[in-house]
Design a protein around this nucleic acid. Structure first.
Lengths: 152, 152
DNA sequence: TTATCATATTCACTATATTGAATATAATAT
DNA sequence: ATATTATATTCAATATAGTGAATATGATAA
């Protein structure tokens, strides 16, 4: 393939990634998933969107190759495939002037009172049956991005 | 303002940034502008799009606060306001699998045979009258992004 | 098997983005 | 002034994205 058309393809690939990130609801979802997988009802409780709406946005993120899911009984847990997506998001945060210097919050990791998922009800004796391999957050700390000027 | 609605606003601000980046032609334009300002005819010659089309995309990038322009005689030179935008773009490149490890190219800094702008015709005795302050590229090397895991 | 729970999908409508064509503007040269 | 050059804007047609409402699926419990 010609170098020129290869480049155009690269820009299209990248544009598709940005297209997936260009919606506030999807950014909010990715914010909830920052420290590990969560089920749809957790996203529902955390963000206050309707279930069908969240499912639609999840479908889009899934089609874009950003998240994947696994079923565990009634619940379907979603998680980010490549934590590098938060490098992109944090770099954007630096430009828009938010999240500068301060750590993203872990607020969604705490159990939510209005969420029926096993993660939020572990203390109430509800069977968890969590797959340990996937229950671990993909990124343990927050990703901080720094820029380094390189020699040519 | 409530913390919750402030967060929603932040996501919207960020979404607008990604929206500006979600188009292949605009990514191609930003690629040309990586090492410094260029005029519209240079973008035209470099990318092969129609003039009006480029102007339209430039307007969008300008409205998004990503680029700014200055007039110099016949030519209007565009440049990136915040080079941090390339941190976002390069982080995306890492995810899509392009530009990995290899330096972005300076190909558009060389004079183009089919571009009538003063920068491309400096050797032919055409008056330059360049504003030195703006003629310098905003970023001298390429920005490489690395991720560091932080303690909580 | 039937009911229920969590989640996904489809459809239809509206809003927004893309893009070509035509035209306008602003600076310069004659 | 007028013509020319570089660039911007407007308009219109089309394509794509956003979103509510209704419905489907698939796992589990009774």
């Amino acid at each position: 393939m010609k170098k020129e058309s290869l480049e155009k393809l690269n820009f299209e690939k990248q544009a598709r990634l940005f297209k997936a990130l260009m919606h506030p609801a999807r950014l909010a979802i990715l914010d909830v998933l920052r420290y590990g997988e969560h089920c749809v009802c957790h996203l529902e409780a955390a963000l206050g969107y309707r279930q069908a709406y969240i499912s639609q946005q999840l479908m889009l993120l899934r089609d874009a190759g950003i998240i994947e899911d696994r079923r565990n009984g009634w619940n379907i847990f979603y998680r980010v495939i490549n934590p590098g997506i938060y490098t992109v998001i944090d770099a954007a945060h630096q430009i828009t002037g938010t999240y500068c210097g301060s750590e993203p919050s872990r607020q969604y990791e705490k159990p939510l009172s209005n969420c029926p998922c096993p993660k939020c009800n572990a203390d109430k004796g509800i069977s968890l049956n969590l797959n340990k391999e996937h229950a671990c957050p993909p990124v343990e700390g927050s990703l901080k991005t720094i820029s380094i000027k390189m020699e040519n």
